[in-house]
């Protein structure tokens, strides 16, 4: 049995922070639970957890069974960030194997939170290339690929700006879908390229809710049915917002 160096309260707070960061960065429910349990075990505590999509509930029981600490924490959605998922995975093993203290953990969490994203131009460029890659996969020619590139870059730019202005997340997706498909739709309208419909169909694929949908299946397989259903519903709402953007553009161009 390990000697407890930290009090239950600070351990509880740091565990909740780890869990909230993991859930908002795109880890599955099972991974969040395992990482929190592993970290707690490394610090010498046993925990009981309730994980939902928007809140975490944690109870720490000290080994003497006399004292316990309970707290709820809200999870604020930030968008997928795998650098944090990767960093926290290393962190939890460090706690387990090198007996990190709570101070060390909170310093590492601060460092992970300030890790830089890729430069905006790089993100726009590579996601644009991904858009033209989709166009190629669905059988578009080089002109359609250029159209898909421009449409994707414009759509992502609009989405980033909308997120900065703190619009509703589904509305951000709608705006992005509208911008991307409007550009591809105009190309179709003026008959640019041989198969302009391919560019129209693939210009919005960068918005596809891949992480919510795949995590939803993962959660369902792990038995976290509730979280799985919530994630699937979220994914369907995003798909619906994309479809509304496309629908709006079709209405505008047929007018």
């Amino acid at each position: 049995m390990k000697i407890l160096k930290e009090d239950a309260q600070s351990v509880g707070n740091i565990l909740l922070e780890i869990g909230a960061l993991l859930m908002s960065s795109g880890a599955s429910t099972n991974r969040t639970r395992l990482t929190m349990e592993r970290t707690a075990k490394g610090l010498g505590y046993g925990i009981e957890l309730l994980i939902t999509q928007r809140a975490l509930m944690l109870t720490i029981i000290e080994k003497d069974q006399q004292h316990f600490f309970s707290r709820l924490k809200r999870i604020s959605p930030h968008g997928v960030n795998f650098r944090i998922v990767s960093g926290i995975s290393h962190l939890s093993w460090n706690v387990m194997e090198q007996n990190w203290t709570v101070t060390q953990i909170s310093e590492e969490l601060q460092r992970l939170k300030t890790l830089p994203h890729y430069p905006r131009l790089v993100v726009l460029g590579t996601v644009g290339l991904a858009g033209s890659a989709f166009c190629n996969i669905f059988g578009g020619g080089s002109i359609e690929m250029v159209v898909a590139f421009i449409a994707t870059v414009a759509g992502l730019f609009v989405r980033q700006e909308a997120i900065k202005k703190k619009f509703n997340p589904y509305l951000c997706v709608f705006f992005a879908s509208l911008a991307a498909s409007l550009i591809a739709g105009l190309a179709e309208h003026y008959h640019i390229g041989l198969q302009p419909d391919k560019a129209f169909a693939t210009s919005v694929l960068f918005l596809v809710p891949g992480v919510p949908l795949i995590n939803s299946v993962t959660d369902l397989m792990d038995g976290n049915i509730q979280n799985g259903i919530v994630r699937a519903m979220n994914g369907l709402m995003i798909a619906f917002s994309i479809a509304m953007g496309l629908f709006a553009v079709k209405m505008i161009l047929n007018f």
């Binding site: 795109g26 997928v80 960030n81 795998f82 650098r83 990767s86 994203h117 890729y118 790089v122 993100v123 590579t126 996601v127 644009g128 290339l129 991904a130 858009g131 890659a133 989709f134 996969i137 960068f206 891949g210 992480v211």
Partner: peptide, 13 residues
């Protein structure tokens, strides 16, 4: 290449 686009969007190491 499409996979890389999403990888950059998700900020992988």
């Amino acid at each position: 290449i499409a996979a890389i686009g999403f990888a950059i969007l998700f900020n992988v190491p």
